[in-house]
């Protein structure tokens, strides 16, 4: 039987195409547009080719913030992942304390980013903040507004406080899905606590943990509000991470071309790292 061609069905796809266009494609293309041209306003553009990309990639300022960003993300991942797993493992799996623990864990996640920044800012102020004042009265020389190390420590601790819960909750969900029979079998097989973790709990948590690490990587790599409210990127440039730097270039200096080029590079870096990480984790799975 010959099928008659009817192209009208394409109209049914139109709403989705429009939605995707307005929410992803057009904004992205605007950025691409800016990254390849120079403008002085009045909607007048001059073709620049890849000049802005070269400039950004060669700029020491970009290297420095990228390095700070990588360092920050590695630090928080190195702390939050083991800590999150440890907390999830020590949470009760049944009984009345389960809901108490879950609510306590979820609390930091419910606080808006800028509120977290403001809370920690006040909390850590060396003269009136509880943390800052206590540290100083215990003899530590602590001032996050002036010392880079203090500023970094405060930023990292703030992120750990805010986001470890996410890893805890995801890992906890993974742990809860392990049937009792596995633990019983492990006891029968004479497995030690470490072996139970290594061969039962960790493999069962692997998928959720992969997602948790991906989420934490992306979020921390794009972190803006909390350090902006806490330190404003300072002292000096010491806590100026990629997003803060990008905003400074785009809105502070109004260098739209370099800012657009930097956004694209930034985006590609995030995409690349996520892809590599996910592929590695999943290839292991397939074997």
């Amino acid at each position: 039987m010959r099928k008659s061609t009817n192209q009208k069905a394409w109209w049914l796809v139109a709403p989705v195409l429009l939605l995707v266009a307005f929410n992803a494609f057009i904004p992205l293309m605007t950025v691409v547009n800016y990254s390849l041209q120079e403008t002085f306003g009045d909607n007048v553009f001059f073709w620049e080719g890849v000049t802005w990309f070269e400039q950004v990639l060669r700029s020491e300022r970009f290297h420095a913030s990228l390095l700070r960003q990588l360092l920050f993300t590695s630090m928080i991942l190195a702390i939050e992942v083991p800590l999150g797993i440890a907390v999830a493992l020590s949470m009760p799996r049944k009984g009345p304390w389960v809901s108490v623990c879950l609510v306590l864990m979820a609390l930091p996640l419910l606080i808006p980013w800028n509120v977290v920044g403001a809370m920690w800012n006040i909390f850590a102020l060396p003269d009136i903040g509880l943390l800052g004042y206590s540290l100083n009265s215990m003899g530590f020389d602590y001032n996050f507004t002036q010392q880079p190390v203090s500023a970094w420590m405060t930023t990292v601790v703030m992120d750990v406080w805010h986001w470890t819960s996410l890893i805890v909750l995801l890992c906890y969900a993974g742990l809860c899905s392990i049937p009792d029979a596995y633990y019983q079998a492990a006891r029968i097989d004479g497995a030690t606590g470490w072996a139970v973790f290594r061969y039962i709990q960790l493999p069962k948590m692997k998928r959720v943990l992969t997602i948790a690490i991906l989420l934490r990587f992306m979020d921390s790599f794009m972190i803006y509000t909390e350090p902006f409210v806490l330190t404003g990127g300072g002292p000096g440039n010491t806590t100026t991470f990629l997003s803060i730097d990008l905003v400074k270039i785009a809105l502070g200096q109004f260098d739209l071309g370099p800012a657009a080029a930097m956004s694209l590079i930034y985006f590609l870096v995030v995409l690349l790292i996520c892809w590599v990480f996910y592929t590695l984790m999943m290839r292991n799975e397939a074997q």
Binding site: P179, A185, R187, I188, Y199, I200, K204
Partner: peptide
């Protein structure tokens, strides 16, 4: 359990996936 030298097979098979 470990000192009783008992083997037990459960209703649902338990294998160490990795």
């Amino acid at each position: 359990t470990a000192e009783r030298h008992i083997a037990q097979v459960f209703q649902f098979p338990v294998v160490y996936d990795t």
